[in-house]
Design a protein around this nucleic acid. Structure first.
Lengths: 355, 355
DNA sequence: CTGAAAGCGCTTACAG
DNA sequence: CTGAAAGCGCTTACAG
């Protein structure tokens, strides 16, 4: 069924044009300046290529040239960041955009998903080399694999944290602490003096950084205090904790506590922002029914920056390594407002549940 | 700066293990059944590869094997379908998912964006061959390029319409007519007998198909009538048209008229669905403030189907070509309800503007 | 069971 | 200005 007429090769073109293969390559790649080719020869070659419907085999070109104008995108999670649902996807959007404008194709390493966390070297081998450089992303970054790439001099950048020393490779990370500090300062500016930070667990580094950022901002203010509400499973516990701390503002440092916060608000236990200001240290979805004051992670931007970095390295425009910390902007929404004169009791008749 | 220690090649491994290059290839690719290799030799080779940190060059493998386990994704629009904003992106999500589960990598042809509609053969050449097969998508599908690929026997599938004969290539398309008919039947089932279809222009084929689908369903009902409202620029004109047709239900065949419909609803000129039922023949966004009755285009599914098709062809599991029409499901939302007893005047005191 | 050799389709010095 | 040749790093019949 498939027309198995072999594709024409450079050889065929050369034969038809009556020149050598090298000449075909020279003409078709338009290597002016290097060698001069007579207009007559040039035309013969171009005509032969056209007649034959010739187009070069990119794989052969890649092998001969050693450069492909392809950037890889690799995620360490088991599955590829499919849809909008997956936040990894936002990075990819930025990477795509940059690839487009810099005239690179993009290779998504979708293979090998589903079989546990992906390793860079599958069964000891490496598919990566197809790409001139690669952007890695993920929360479990296979340090051995990265080290090996480093040793080989393979150009790559990691979006995320790793235990490898920051000056030994290129990474791009969010300035979570800075974003958190901004959020806290916004609340301080609104007059809040008792601020609570709620989170499910300090198990990940970026959450610890966010807490640290809040601490810093509150400490700078001097006259305010910060309290930590950790691992609160439900709305009732959260409310009790807020009451006991006398907090007028709540910073959510962790997406995982959002359900509790939403429940608290939805049940009408507390009026936002009149009784309680709420800020989120991550990109906000539409879940709250009103624009949420939040820190914009702008993942697409990180993707762009990562691309810029890896392409610079490929082109030899870079010498050392660096950790690039990208500022996170705070966006004031409708969930934060001036501090109430005094703690209004959060809700009349609230149950006095204790830890 | 970059460690320029040449990567070890098969040759290096062979030398170290004291065997020939062919043997290294055999061992490392674990070609059992073909040739038997002694356990001792095998171990020598594996050890040498490990010691040297050898991994095969995928480009060389591709050139030698002629197959890459890569599928391409090519869009004809100037720019790559960046973000969620772009509806092309939904297809990509399905393609990614399928690539993952079938163990293919995915090559996004992001190059060449921005310089007018993209052609398959850039300056007469063809980068495509890097992928074993390709999924094309777009509304302006470069028929010459596709024809040429067809002639070469290159495996691909087009998501979308083309003027090439449907049995000459693989395409995957929405059954717009079927989805529209379902929407119309839903309204007929609710008792509506005067239904209007609104659209900005019949300039694209899929819009004509949607209109046709509505026509078919209404004709089947026998006792109902369908009227067409075309190119209505504003809410006032739309309302006037609805009144003049005595329509109790409005089918939006074209996203471009949504602003007018939204304006009509937002201004309180008409109560939905009490006075007017509204159905949309495309995937609905959150713009209406309530769940919109609509036809679900399920683009990710089309992406999956396209992938399935092209991979089947690559593996030789296919003989002829086909146009695959994917059903579109109608989803009842809150914007459609029982037909009012009689036309309630759409709104009291409406201005009697005439076309 | 293993080695020597041809081949995949290009690019690029190097001679003429 | 052009040709012959080596090389990119692998795979795969084909002899032994």
């Amino acid at each position: 069924m498939v027309s198995s007429a072999r594709r024409p090769t450079q050889e065929d073109v050369a034969r038809r044009a009556g020149v050598s293969r090298g000449t075909v390559s020279l003409v078709l790649n338009d290597r002016r300046g290097r060698v001069l080719i007579s207009a007559a020869t040039r035309e013969k070659v171009v005509a032969a290529a056209r007649d034959l419907g010739y187009s070069p085999n990119p794989v052969a070109q890649m092998l001969a040239r050693g450069r492909n104008r392809i950037i890889g995108f690799f995620t360490f999670e088991q599955t590829f960041p499919y849809g909008e649902e997956d936040f990894h996807h936002r990075y990819l959007v930025g990477v795509e955009r940059e690839a487009c404008s810099r005239d690179f194709d993009l290779l998504l390493f979708t293979r090998g998903g589903g079989e546990g966390p992906k390793a860079i070297y599958r069964s000891g081998m490496n598919t990566l080399r197809l790409a001139d450089g690669c952007i890695f992303i993920g929360t479990d970054p296979d340090p051995e694999g990265l080290q090996r790439l480093l040793a080989e001099g393979y150009p790559f950048v990691l979006i995320g944290r790793t235990r490898i020393a920051p000056d030994a490779l290129d990474t791009v990370v969010h300035d979570h602490a800075g974003g958190a500090a901004e959020a806290a300062r916004h609340l301080l500016g609104l007059g809040h003096r008792a601020i609570a930070v709620a989170l499910q667990s300090q198990d990940t580094e970026f959450i610890r950084e966010r807490v640290e950022g809040c601490r810093r901002a509150v400490a700078e203010a001097g006259d305010a205090r910060l309290s930590l509400i950790e691992s609160c499973p439900g709305a009732a516990e959260l409310k009790a904790a807020l009451l006991s701390h006398g907090a007028t503002a709540l910073i959510c440092a962790d997406r995982r506590i959002l359900p509790a916060v939403r429940a608290l608000v939805a049940e009408g236990e507390v009026r936002v922002p009149d009784e309680l200001s709420v800020a989120l240290l991550a990109t906000a979805g539409p879940e709250f029914g009103m624009p949420v004051s939040h820190v914009d992670l702008n993942r697409a931007r990180l993707g762009r920056i990562a691309f810029e970095r890896v392409s610079a390295r490929i082109e030899g425009r870079l010498s050392g390594f660096a950790r690039i910390s990208v500022p996170c902007q705070f966006v004031a929404g409708a969930t934060t407002g001036p501090a109430p004169r005094r703690l209004s009791g959060a809700a009349a008749g609230g149950r006095r549940s204790r830890g």
